[in-house]
Structures are given as structure tokens and as C-alpha cells.
């Protein structure tokens, strides 16, 4: 089992049936397709290319959010702006996406490394729809490899807002709802302390210790009163997942 397989299986379990999920391409979309194939057949996917309700075909995983593979058997193609406006109106239950750099309050940076936006040390691709998903979905779940260089005390640039500087600042900025609820990683599942909005360890994957999670995190994590151990991916889950990505485009 690869790290990406573990991540996709555990992330898929976070999604509920009868919900509307705004998914980014790569592991998040793969996990959402897995959830649809198993426990959430009535989950409606929204893809930022202006695509609602597609059925992703095994072996035909989209590379981008704007292509026929992403739009396969869609129920509606409203256009990009209007797809996001459904989220702004509050129709989208979960935003499901990755992130390059994430801080203790769940804020994500996919724009620039370095402190001067106009003279970046490293230019990253940018927000795409990530800022909109993070701003407008009723809840956001981040799916990411757990690496120390990604989990930083403070992101260089807030591309996608979660809890900003802790409790209160998200609402004060004018964002009416939403925020990151969970961060599903290759080591465990993290949530946020309801008072301080600091990231906290809630579960570890089998064979992973809390100390290992801490060692791979560049800031001090809060620890839940009871840290659970996630159930290992079952053969059935892995089989269904591998059927979706036989070319192993995203599974490694």
C-alpha cells in the first residue's frame, strides 16, 4: 500500500452520503470517487470547471478540472463562475482539497514562498479555485501528505483562509460560514481545538505514534483528550480504489 492509497482511503471515509462536495483534482477527487463507489452513492460532486454531478470513470481520471474526463456524465454544466456561486449561496457541504503549505490555523498557501509577494523566492501555481472553496463551502477537509516542510508555524501567504489567526478572525473578516474542520494526512487525522482553533491530533494511522506526527509538524500540535487509531484500509477499499486509477496516475 502506497502513502497515496492510505490517504485516499482514509479521506474517502470522511465524506457522507447525500452531500454535495466541491473536490479538487488528484487525491481529493479520487477519494470522492471512491466514496461514491462505496458508501456514498448519492454524493454530488462539484468540480470547478463548471461541472456538477459527474461520474468519474475508472481509468479515466481527470488531470484538470476543465476537461471531458471531469465532466463525464455530468448532470449540469453551469459554467465556472456559476459553479462557485452555488457554494457562495451555501449549497456545498464540503470542500475537499489539497494544499502546498498549511499553518496551525489551517490556512493554506499555494501562491508564493518568501515574504514579498511581488518578488517571490518560489512562485507556486496559485489559488485556482482553492481560495473560493476555502471561503465558501460550509466545511473544508484538507487532504495532504504529512511533511514537516508543509506544516509550518505561519504560512508565507494566506492563499486560502481557514481560521486565519484563531477564533473569531474568520467571521470578523466577513466570511459567514465554513472553515477547515479536518486535515487528513498520510500520518493521521487532525482537527482544530474549538476555542483556540489551533490544529490538534485526533487520530493516528496504524503503526504511527503521536511523537511521529509531532516530528513531521513544524509547530506545536494540540492533542485531543483521546487520540484514536484509524482502521487500516480494507482489501475491499483498496481494490475499489485501485480500480479507479489502474494507470496509477495519482496512487504512486
Amino acid at each position: 500500500m502506497t502513502a497515496a492509497e492510505l490517504l485516499a482511503v482514509v479521506a474517502a471515509r470522511e465524506l457522507r452520503d447525500d452531500t454535495t462536495v466541491f473536490a479538487g483534482v488528484g487525491v481529493p477527487l479520487l477519494a470522492a470517487a471512491l466514496a461514491r463507489a462505496r458508501h456514498a452513492p448519492r454524493l454530488t460532486l462539484v468540480i470547478e470547471g463548471g461541472i456538477i454531478g459527474p461520474e468519474i470513470a475508472p481509468g479515466r481520471l481527470p488531470i484538470s478540472t476543465n476537461e471531458m474526463r471531469a465532466g463525464r456524465r455530468a448532470t449540469m454544466l453551469p459554467g465556472i463562475t456559476d459553479a462557485f456561486l452555488f457554494a457562495q449561496r451555501g449549497f456545498v457541504d464540503v470542500g475537499f482539497m489539497g494544499g502546498a503549505q498549511i499553518d496551525r490555523y489551517g490556512n493554506i498557501n499555494t501562491s508564493v514562498l518568501g515574504t514579498d509577494y511581488w518578488n517571490p523566492k518560489v512562485r507556486l501555481p496559485g489559488t485556482g479555485g482553492a481560495n473560493d472553496i476555502a471561503s465558501l463551502c460550509r466545511e473544508v477537509i484538507i487532504v495532504t501528505p504529512h511533511e514537516r516542510r508543509r506544516f509550518v508555524e505561519r504560512v508565507d501567504f494566506v492563499t486560502s483562509p481557514a481560521w486565519l489567526r484563531g477564533d473569531g478572525s474568520r467571521r470578523a473578516a466577513g466570511l459567514l460560514f465554513g472553515g477547515v474542520s479536518r486535515v487528513v494526512t498520510t500520518l493521521g487525522i487532525l482537527g482544530f481545538d474549538p476555542d483556540s482553533r489551533r490544529m490538534r491530533i485526533e487520530a493516528v494511522h496504524p503503526g504511527v505514534s503521536v511523537a511521529t506526527v509531532r516530528a513531521h509538524t513544524g509547530f506545536e500540535l494540540v492533542e485531543a483528550a483521546h487520540v484514536a487509531v484509524t482502521a487500516p484500509p480494507s482489501e475491499e477499499e483498496l481494490e475499489a480504489l485501485r480500480a479507479l486509477d489502474p494507470e496509477r496516475r495519482f496512487l504512486g
Partner: peptide, 13 residues
């Protein structure tokens, strides 16, 4: 008017 980008550093860019 929109809610998007509020609170993020994109607002300033």
C-alpha cells in the same frame, strides 16, 4: 460584491 477572498492575502494583491 462577493464573500470570496475575504480574509486572505489575495485581497491586497
Amino acid at each position: 460584491p462577493t464573500l470570496t477572498m475575504l480574509g486572505s492575502d489575495l485581497i491586497a494583491v
